[in-house]
Design a binder for these strands. Structure first.
Lengths: 123, 123
DNA sequence: ATTGTTGTATTAGGCTATTAATACAACAAT
DNA sequence: ATTGTTGTATTAATAGCCTAATACAACAAT
């Protein structure tokens, strides 16, 4: 797994987001074993305690669960993951529309702009 | 002007964003006088120094300028504002596409999703 | 039983950004 | 000249976050 940590925001938050994305996007599959806290921390170049903090939060959300000495596993409940994916997509989209609105663009204008940008990138 | 400050992110950043939006969206017009630091701070319910910090940044960007004892004014350079509006819209849109990509949605899928959401809201 | 690996808990320390308090400086208005 | 309003500067206090060190607990593997 690839990590991108910057110093703009709390590290533990960025870890949460990135692990979450990995689950939602399918990099981790339901039931997969997650590397140990220490390993993940080493990969990401952060302190184990920081990684631990992030994992606890993911557990609270229900995305992972723990078998005390065996390690952590991605939830096998595909519904939870699916739900989160839909919810995340909705939130991101609503935030986007909201941000554009603050700039003075209506939903229709926003739609036009994004269509155009997607077209441009394609070429 | 209406302020929305939460405690998720630095106050001075939120102030910058909101004043910037007010300029871009046309709530403030080119050449307009801006209320005093103390007035703005009172309105927004923040410390004057915090507001000051935000205004300094807006000045750096070129959106406002200062006449030492007369107060601050929105730039009269409509080009600067226009440019910023376009740039902001582009950044926001690219960020959106990027966020959706992290969830595993292609640009085309993202376009479908946002179209659908815009339709739904309309009704 | 011993060893190693896993997750967990606790505490302390330091760093940095943010906010707040306060005083200062420039000048317009009177 | 005095007063009030403006922006500015400096310093202090606070809070949050991260790291680090360390110890503990559970259990698998041997």
């Amino acid at each position: 797994m690839q990590w991108h940590i910057d110093s703009e925001r709390p590290v533990y938050i960025q870890l949460i987001e990135q692990i979450q994305s990995s689950i939602i996007s399918g990099y981790f599959n339901p039931g997969d074993k997650v590397p140990s806290v220490r390993d993940l921390a080493a990969q990401a170049g952060v302190n184990p305690n920081t990684m631990q903090k992030s994992l606890v939060e993911l557990e609270r959300i229900g995305l992972v669960h723990t078998n005390r000495t065996k390690g952590r596993y991605i939830t096998s409940d595909t519904e939870v993951i699916k739900k989160l994916k839909i919810e995340s997509a909705n939130n991101i989209t609503m935030d986007f529309l909201d941000n554009m609105k603050k700039l003075g663009f209506s939903k229709e204008e926003t739609l036009k702009i994004i269509k155009k940008i997607v077209e441009e990138i394609k070429e």
